[in-house]
Design a binder for these strands. Structure first.
Lengths: 203, 203
DNA sequence: AACATAACCGGAGCGCCCTCCGGTTATTGC
DNA sequence: GCAATAACCGGAGGGCGCTCCGGTTATGTT
C-alpha cells in the first residue's frame, strides 16, 4: 500500500530547483532593458532581438526565461498591475471587499479602464499567451468577476457572464474604440456602468 | 460655379478600371486552392506560401489580390457568410425584419453561433484585418446590432452595446470557451439569450 | 496590326518569432 | 578544494508574413 506521504512530491512537482544566480541576473537585465525600450518606442516597435541585444543576452536566453513574446509582455505588465490585483482582493472598498458585489463590479470596470488607458498595448500582446497553453493575464480577472457576478446576480451563469464582461474590456477592442473610433474614456466608463446595472438588476 | 455633375466622378473614385482577365483568373485559382488547403488541414496549418504554390502563383500576386493573410481569410469567409448576412437584412423573421428587435437580437446570436461553430478559426484570422486600416468582418455586424439595440433598448448607448455584444461572440473567445473550457454550445446560446434579455428589459 | 501604357506577374529578400544544440558555468556533495 | 552534474548560455538557422522591383502581358487606340 502506497503511503500518501510518498505521493506528495508528485502532487507538488512545481517545486523548481531554485533559480541559478546568473539566470536571475540575466532575467533582471532583460526586464530592465525591455522596460526601457518599451517606454521609449512602445511595444509594437520593439522586437525580441532588440531586447536581447539591449540586455547583452542571446535570444535563446530570452526565450528560456519568458517562453515567448507574450510572456515577456506579461512579466513587464506584472510590475504595473500587481497593485491593482492586490487592491481587488485586499484593498479598501469599493474595489476590495466590504460593499455589495454590484458596486464592486462597477469599481472593477473603472479600475481596469485605468489600467487599459496606460497599458492596453502591452495587454494586447500578453493576451496572446492564452493560445499557447499558458495562462494569460485574464485568468485572474475572470475568476474574480465570476465570484462577484455569482453574488450580485445569482440567476445568471456567473462564469459565462464574467467572460462576457471581460470581453467588453478586451485590450484590442479598447484600442479600437479609443483610437479608431475616437470614443472618450467616459463613454466606455458609463457603458460599463450601464452594462453592470442591467445585469445586476432584479428580474 | 461648379456644376454638381462635374464633381460626381470625384465623389465616386472607387470606380476601379475593371479587373484584367488574367488577374481575375488568378484570383479564382487562388481562392480555389486556398479553400482546398483550408478544408484539408485547417487555416492554421496553411501558410501563404503554401497557397501560392498550390495556385501556381507568386506570393506577390497573392498579396496584391488580398492584401494580407486576414484579407484572404475574409475572402474565403465571404462565400460562407453571405447567406447569413443577407438573411439579416432581407430574410424572413426572426432573423430578418418583421418581429420586435429584441427577438431579432436573440436570433442573431443563434445564427452567429452557428457560423462560429463552423468557421471560428477562419474568423479569428480575419478579424486581425481591423488592425491594418481595412474593415474586418465585424463592421457589418456591429452596425446591424447597433440598429437593433437602438430599437429594443433606447436608453442604452446603442453603438457601445453593439460592440460589447459582439465582443461576447469574438471568434478567439469562442474557441477558448469551446475547446479549452469545454463548454457546450448550448451554454453559449443560453448565455447570449440571458444577456440580451437583461439588456432589453424595461428599466 | 502595331504601339503605348497601365496593370500585372514572380520570386528574391527582409525582419520577425521562435527552436535547437554544442559549449560553458554555477552548484552540490565529498 | 575538486569533481560530477544539472542548469544555463549564445547564436545559427528555419519558417513565416509581407514588400519591392525589374520584367512581362493584357487592353484600348490609332
Amino acid at each position: 500500500m502506497i503511503g500518501p506521504v510518498a505521493e506528495l512530491p508528485l502532487l507538488q512537482p512545481a517545486q523548481e530547483p531554485r533559480e541559478r544566480a546568473d539566470a536571475a541576473r540575466n532575467r533582471l537585465r532583460i526586464l530592465a532593458a525591455a522596460a526601457d525600450l518599451v517606454a521609449e518606442r512602445g511595444i509594437e516597435h520593439v522586437s525580441m532581438d532588440d531586447v536581447a541585444r539591449a540586455a547583452c543576452v542571446g535570444t535563446g536566453t530570452l526565450y528560456r526565461r519568458f517562453g515567448d513574446r507574450a510572456g515577456l509582455a506579461l512579466a513587464l505588465l506584472d510590475e504595473h498591475t500587481r497593485a491593482f490585483q492586490d487592491a481587488l482582493i485586499f484593498g479598501p472598498p469599493p474595489l476590495g471587499p466590504g460593499v455589495p458585489a454590484a458596486e464592486r463590479l462597477r469599481a472593477f470596470g473603472d479600475g481596469y479602464l485605468d489600467v487599459l488607458e496606460e497599458h492596453a498595448d502591452l495587454l494586447a500582446v500578453a493576451v496572446a499567451r492564452a493560445r499557447r497553453g499558458q495562462a494569460g493575464p485574464e485568468q485572474l480577472y475572470a475568476t474574480h468577476l465570476a465570484i462577484l457576478v455569482r453574488e450580485a446576480a445569482p440567476r445568471l451563469d456567473a462564469e459565462f457572464t464574467a467572460l462576457s464582461l471581460l470581453a467588453t474590456l478586451d485590450p484590442a477592442r479598447h484600442l479600437h474604440a479609443r483610437r479608431e473610433l475616437g470614443w472618450p474614456v467616459e463613454r466606455l466608463r458609463s457603458g460599463w456602468r450601464t452594462l453592470v446595472d442591467a445585469l445586476t438588476a432584479a428580474p
